[in-house]
Simulated scan of single mutants.
Amino acid sequence: MGNRANFVVVEDQDWQLYYSHWGGCRMLDALIGGPELALRYAASLRRCKKTDWCDPLWADGGAVVDLDRQRVLFFGEPLMMTMNERRALMDVLPIVWPGYEICWAYDGTEELAGYVGADLPPVKWGRQPELKLVRRRNNLCHLISVVEADDALRFWPLKWHLSLAWHGPALLNKLPGKGVGRIRLGMIPEGGAHIDMHRKTLGAWQTADTMGVFRALPELWPGWQIEVWEDGFEEHVSRCGGALRVPELDVIAGIDTAERWLTKRIFESFEDSPAGRIAELAGMLAPITPGFVVSADALADRGVRPTQAEWSRVLSACDQVRSAHAKSA
């Protein structure tokens, strides 16, 4: 049990690897306060050998903080899966990290390891994510659109988390049902692919897949022209003309939601934290399960929080982004 993450600090042309048991789904807790908070966070973690990377199948997140090149590369955060919050936070982070380039690690652990020149063992997994239609249009989905040989356009809103481009061209024969010719979604998808059978092109974008799909696409789709759109849902919408409708991007709403959620999560009590819940569960099980042991990583809560000055800078950055988008509206 855990939300595992690799955390790397690069300094003086060398790097140190750390392990976080609960950071994988809350990487912003470490990064939102700027460099000083990130370094305090790293110092609170377990130092690892440079070969002891968390398996990409188990890693929910990770980050590289490169002090030499002033660059942050990270993934692993539910707030980054919904587009309003994602775009808002990617505006906030450069303000609290002045002079740094802030980047999303679209290919997850593999991309972090590659950044510092580490070699990971090959990951063995099926690479065949489930193809299941999402019936409710107000839920997140992974959107597949296909321009068929006769130039007809069809859509499939499918279960999200892993890119369905992992299936390769065989995806075209696996899509459930006939699809729909027009679609209006109540939420911007977390990712998708636009496949043009006539031109033999694939455009893919995503926010949630951490298994390295972008790097794998040339192998998965041999002979196809590949376009990587990162998190560019706008390109997907543009390619589909008026047949695809999604809500307007609302960065101000994203700032409001992200600020509320981060405040609650970062400043939660120990009892409400994952480590606190595990400690409570361990105490309940101890009398009835002799020898039951919980790892030190699972129980660790170092209390690394932003200082008052750091948190004030975060709130000020949020206000700056609100103001900028209000003026441009």
Rank of each mutant, 00 (worst) to 15 (best):
M1F: 05
G2F: 05
N3F: 11
F7Y: 12
V9I: 15
W15P: 00
Y18W: 12
L28R: 04
L28N: 03
D29R: 11
L31D: 02
I32G: 03
P35H: 02
E36H: 11
E36I: 06
A38S: 09
A38G: 06
L39C: 07
Y41W: 15
Y41S: 00
Y41D: 00
Y41M: 01
Y41Q: 01
A43D: 14
A43P: 03
C48T: 04
C48V: 05
C48N: 11
D52N: 09
W53R: 01
A63S: 15
V64L: 02
V65T: 04
L67P: 00
D68K: 06
R69H: 15
R71A: 08
L73D: 09
G76Y: 15
T82C: 05
M90G: 01
L93G: 00
P94N: 02
W97A: 00
C103K: 12
A105H: 05
G108E: 04
G108M: 05
L112C: 07
L112D: 03
Y115P: 04
Y115L: 08
V116F: 13
V116C: 05
G117N: 14
P121T: 03
V123D: 00
V123E: 03
G126W: 03
R127N: 02
P129C: 06
L131T: 03
L131M: 04
L133I: 09
N138Q: 09
L143H: 11
L143Y: 06
I144W: 01
I144S: 02
S145Y: 10
D150K: 14
D151Y: 08
L153P: 10
R154A: 06
F155Y: 12
F155H: 06
W156S: 02
P157E: 02
K159H: 11
A165P: 01
G168L: 05
G177D: 02
V180Y: 04
V180D: 00
G181Q: 12
G186R: 12
P189W: 08
E190I: 14
G192K: 06
A193P: 08
D196K: 13
G203D: 14
Q206A: 07
T210L: 05
F214D: 08
A216E: 15
P218T: 10
L220H: 09
L220C: 05
G223W: 12
I226H: 13
V228F: 11
W229S: 04
F233P: 01
E234Y: 13
E235A: 14
H236L: 02
H236G: 04
G241L: 10
L244E: 07
E248A: 12
E248I: 03
L249T: 03
A253C: 05
I255W: 07
D256M: 07
E259C: 12
R260W: 09
W261V: 10
L262N: 01
R265C: 04
I266R: 04
A275Q: 01
A286C: 08
I288C: 10
I288N: 07
G291N: 09
F292A: 15
V293A: 07
A296D: 10
A296N: 06
A298R: 15
R302H: 10
R302T: 02
G303W: 07
R305L: 14
T307M: 10
A309C: 10
S312G: 11
A317F: 06
V321G: 07
K327D: 11
A329F: 14
